[in-house]
């Protein structure tokens, strides 16, 4: 028994089983009247609606807007965050001066700054991208600092004694040593980024998945609302798992 569960196939079927069980419980709870169907529609209505939405041009347009904002914010913020983190992690001077600043700010809830972003960038595409970047940058900087500090001076000492050139130090020591931590930071940054963009869309906007979900909620379209939530969840999980797969691949040696 325990062997079956420990194996990969066994684990995956157990996980699928749990998801199916949750949906079944949800369905039964609604059908038996344990939950109010007007507030919580059953999955037998929500799941087909979520699938149908993937063929609905209005939903697809809004999904596209959200994805474009998330991707653009990510592509812009990733190199900036990593560069700042590496600089702070590698340079004693900048590190001492600015590291505390980032650690303090990281603990402040970023959502309170949203009104400032609306004043500065309006309520369109640019503001969503800017706010997504703002949400993501702190975790990116902090993990890049950790990545830089994870490069043991013993590795560098050995490589230099064996005649490594500067280029070889970067490509054969720094890069492989830092990659798993950097990818982990990218994954966390992506989660913050998606959260930021969706939150900004729900607060005030004219388009995007967050805009749709917020509209459906306020107009009491519960089936649409839950279908939208499922789509948003599926999207985030897919992105997160893809990055986690890569993280495990480049970090297998961490044991």
């Amino acid at each position: 028994m325990s062997h079956g569960l420990a194996s990969r196939a066994g684990r995956i079927s157990a996980q699928i089983g749990i998801v199916v069980a949750i949906f079944l419980f949800w369905e039964v709870a609604v059908q038996t009247g344990m939950a109010n169907a007007r507030v919580l529609p059953p999955p037998s209505l929500v799941l087909p609606r979520a699938v149908a939405m993937l063929g609905d041009p209005v939903v697809l347009y809004n999904l596209w807007i959200t994805s474009a904002q998330v991707l653009l914010a990510f592509v812009l913020v990733a190199p900036i965050g990593i560069a700042i983190g590496l600089l702070l992690g590698e340079s004693d001077y900048f590190g001492r001066a600015f590291k505390p600043f980032f650690f303090f700010l990281a603990s402040v809830p970023k959502s309170v700054f949203l009104p400032v972003f609306i004043l500065a960038f309006g309520i369109g595409f640019t503001q969503k991208v800017a706010f997504g970047m703002f949400q993501a940058i702190f975790v990116l900087v902090i993990s890049a600092i950790a990545a830089a500090e994870s490069v043991s001076s013993d590795f560098l000492k050995t490589a230099r004694a064996y005649g490594a050139s500067r280029r070889q130090l970067y490509l054969d020591i720094y890069l492989p040593a830092m990659l798993p931590v950097i990818v982990e930071g990218l994954r966390l940054g992506m989660i913050f980024n998606i959260t930021g963009v969706l939150f900004a869309e729900m607060y005030v906007s004219r388009a995007g998945l967050g805009h749709l979900v917020s509209t459906w909620g306020m107009s009491f379209q519960m089936v649409n609302l839950f279908a939208g939530i499922l789509l948003a969840a599926a999207l985030s999980i897919a992105v997160n798992e893809a990055l986690r797969w890569y993280e495990n691949k480049v970090g297998a040696w961490r044991g």
Binding site: D154, F155, T158, P176, R254
Partner: peptide, 11 residues
């Protein structure tokens, strides 16, 4: 050179 064990590249 041979240093203490930490000098092996773990990857």
């Amino acid at each position: 050179v041979v240093f203490q064990e930490s000098s092996l590249l773990p990857w």
